[in-house]
């Protein structure tokens, strides 16, 4: 099977869907002539031309809103945000308009827009560029949010997102862009709302999404090698819809749960996951649910400290041992 980087997998998803459906267009800052701020869209302008791959001004409320409006008429825009942090200046368009219009029109209007881009800390760029808004956005019914952790999932989820008739927000991670993995050539999608057991185990369930999955897999290896513990890692992949069954099935097997995310702890994704586990599998738990999140402060600039702020394999191991105690 071909090996692609996470970046190449996203590009492949866009290329295939642009070939499949002429209504798919790419828009964003520096996506065309510049070939993408992270080179995700490299070569797409050359292949599809300026009518399909469109550079926008730095004007997120304007161009995201324009994409929302165009999607109501059947265009399928794939909008790139250079950082999901920049979505905050387009919040009205992303939440009020894209998220509410189907409901407020009694189901008359659909909004098949995709907004994608990196949403992560850990890159030494300070608080304004390091937001992870998946929990905040997934809190709005009408919106779907996915957070791929691997090249395979990045391609499959983005393809599913582009075909989806509702707004889907794809949160990538700049630190993962160079990660490589097997990605099949043939057409496939990863259904939105299906979690994936990335590692099977029997003693502890770790639930994670995005780059926290990679961190948790590293922690699982340490736990096995150094502590003889068998850890199962559940990758949510999709925040809303959420695959409750896969989480609960794993917890019923291991009876212990540790939740890992790069969000700040307050109202994070894992607050909801913890609620679901205690609500639906309370009697299965042999220990309180553990959590590892980013340290609760605006993202710090200083690189060595930012590495401490974000969950690391060492912190996950430490928290896992507490849940296992």
């Amino acid at each position: 099977m071909p090996i692609l980087s996470y970046r190449e997998a996203i590009r492949a998803a866009m290329r295939e869907e642009m070939k499949r459906d002429e209504n798919v267009v790419i828009m964003g800052e520096e996506v065309a002539q510049f070939n993408g701020a992270y080179k995700v869209t490299e070569g797409l302008l050359k292949e599809f031309g300026p009518k399909r791959v469109i550079d926008t001004p730095i004007s997120e409320a304007g161009f995201i809103g324009l994409g929302v409006g165009a999607s109501m008429l059947g265009i399928r825009p794939v909008m790139e945000l250079m950082f999901w942090s920049f979505s905050y200046v387009a919040f009205d368009q992303i939440v009020n308009n894209a998220g509410n219009i189907r409901y407020m029109s009694g189901g008359l209007i659909n909004c098949p827009i995709v907004i994608r881009g990196p949403a992560n800390g850990g890159t030494n760029v300070g608080a304004t560029h390091s937001h992870t808004p998946e929990a905040m956005l997934a809190a709005h019914p009408g919106i779907k949010v996915v957070c791929p952790a691997t090249p395979y999932d990045a391609k499959g989820l983005l393809k599913a997102a582009i075909r989806d008739n509702d707004p889907v927000y794809v949160m990538e991670n700049t630190i993962l862009y160079n990660d490589k993995g097997e990605v099949p050539d043939e057409d496939y999608i990863v259904p939105i709302g299906v979690a994936d057991v990335k590692r099977a185990g029997t003693d502890l369930t770790i639930v994670a999404h995005g780059r926290a999955v990679i961190t948790s897999l590293k922690a699982a290896e340490i736990l096995e090698a150094e502590h003889g513990v068998s850890v199962e890692v559940v990758d949510l992949r999709s925040i809303r819809p959420l695959d409750e069954e896969t989480i609960l099935t794993s917890v019923r097997k291991t009876h212990r749960a540790l939740l890992v995310e790069e969000n700040k702890p307050f109202c994070g994704v894992d607050a909801q996951v913890a609620y679901i586990i205690q609500s639906k599998a309370f009697d299965e738990l042999d220990a309180p649910i553990g959590r590892v999140s980013s340290i609760d402060a605006p993202q710090i600039y200083s690189k060595p400290l930012e590495d401490v702020q974000i969950p690391s394999p060492a912190r996950v191991v430490e928290a896992a041992l507490k849940v296992l105690a």
């Binding site: 324009l66 929302v68 409006g69």
Partner: peptide
Amino acid sequence: FAPDKNYWGGHGIVGGQAPLGTGIAYALKQ
């Protein structure tokens, strides 16, 4: 809303419809 009559709302946030309408125009041209 009445999309069958080309009427796309009806929007509650002041000015929030301006980018949407611009997107509708973009879609027509596209």
